[in-house]
Design a protein around this nucleic acid. Structure first.
Lengths: 163, 163
DNA sequence: TTGTTTGTGTTATATTGTAACTTTAAAACC
DNA sequence: GGTTTTAAAGTTACAATATAACACAAACAA
């Protein structure tokens, strides 16, 4: 799957990202015999409108527009499903959700998050993740879920770039 | 400062942890010419009653008991102050706060969190933190704040220990 | 001691997330 | 095809977390 190592790039063809994500999700659900319902698809599609994490409540208007019930439980259920399947990640620092560019590979979902433009980019932390896990094991701790998130400023937003 | 490498140990003298934390905080504030007010002290002390992260609202009763105003802003202000000074960390995955055993050293605050008993232990992630930061830099990203949190099961709570 | 800054009191409300129950629609079975 | 079973969505109500805005008071600085 392409487009997964874009980094912070404002000038890519984002339509491609969306298409790929939806296509990938369809394939994945079909493989796993899961129902990729209209609501789930719409939520995923809305999340993929940008590379900015969206809050659950920001997804409600899209549901309303499409004629669905737009109460919180609806969107949280869809988000739960998408998270369980690895199609979206939740960013704890922001209470927000973002699409995963490679839902098939088993991984945690680590992010660089720009405070200025709000874009978030998923990074590969398999190696450091293993270091952390082995450190945990030494303390007798059995790790299950890891969350690595970095707040900062992306290259598009660094001051000198702007001047 | 002792007691900072306790790991998951249910049987330590916790009074020591509390005393040390408060003493350290007093020293730190005095050094930095900051006011360690009764409310700030009480909030810190309450947080240190255990090694379990506490939600902001769980701190309110202690304020009420001591005769202070116990509306949310009071506790959030104290928490903001304590966080700024590195005396407590916020655990994003839990929306909860925990005391920092070594507020003097510059660091991020990474945690192993037990889903069963809720205890959280701070771990040193300076090395992996640097790896992540250099990875970020390669993408032109300027990191500011890092959050590393691991959910799992602590040695006191692993099934075989219980049987 | 008079301003200025910092901390606290207070009210109200914003934001995020769930519980519990009903209704509908899809899938599985006969 | 019709019936049962299960999964998803609709709906209402509310819980949990966090902040805005303004009033007041105590500490500090000149």
């Amino acid at each position: 799957m392409a487009n997964q190592n874009l980094g912070f790039h404002s000038d890519h063809d984002h339509t491609g990202c969306i298409e790929q994500a939806l296509e990938g999700a369809r394939a994945l659900c079909s493989e796993r015999n899961l129902r990729f319902t209209p609501i789930r698809e719409l939520v995923l599609k809305t999340i993929w409108q940008s590379h900015k994490p969206l809050g659950a409540y920001e997804l409600l208007p899209a549901l309303a527009e499409a004629g669905f019930n737009s109460a919180p439980p609806t969107v949280y259920r869809a988000l739960d499903f998408l998270q369980e399947q690895g199609l979206v990640h939740r960013i704890a620092l922001l209470n927000a959700f973002i699409g995963c560019p490679h839902p098939n590979e088993q991984h945690q979902g680590s992010f660089l998050i720009c405070k200025a433009c709000n874009n978030a980019v998923e990074i590969d932390t398999d190696e450091v993740g293993q270091v952390i896990n082995s450190q945990a094991s030494k303390l007798g701790f059995i790790p299950e879920k890891q969350s690595i998130e970095v707040l900062g400023t992306c290259p598009e937003c660094v001051p000198d770039k702007l001047s």
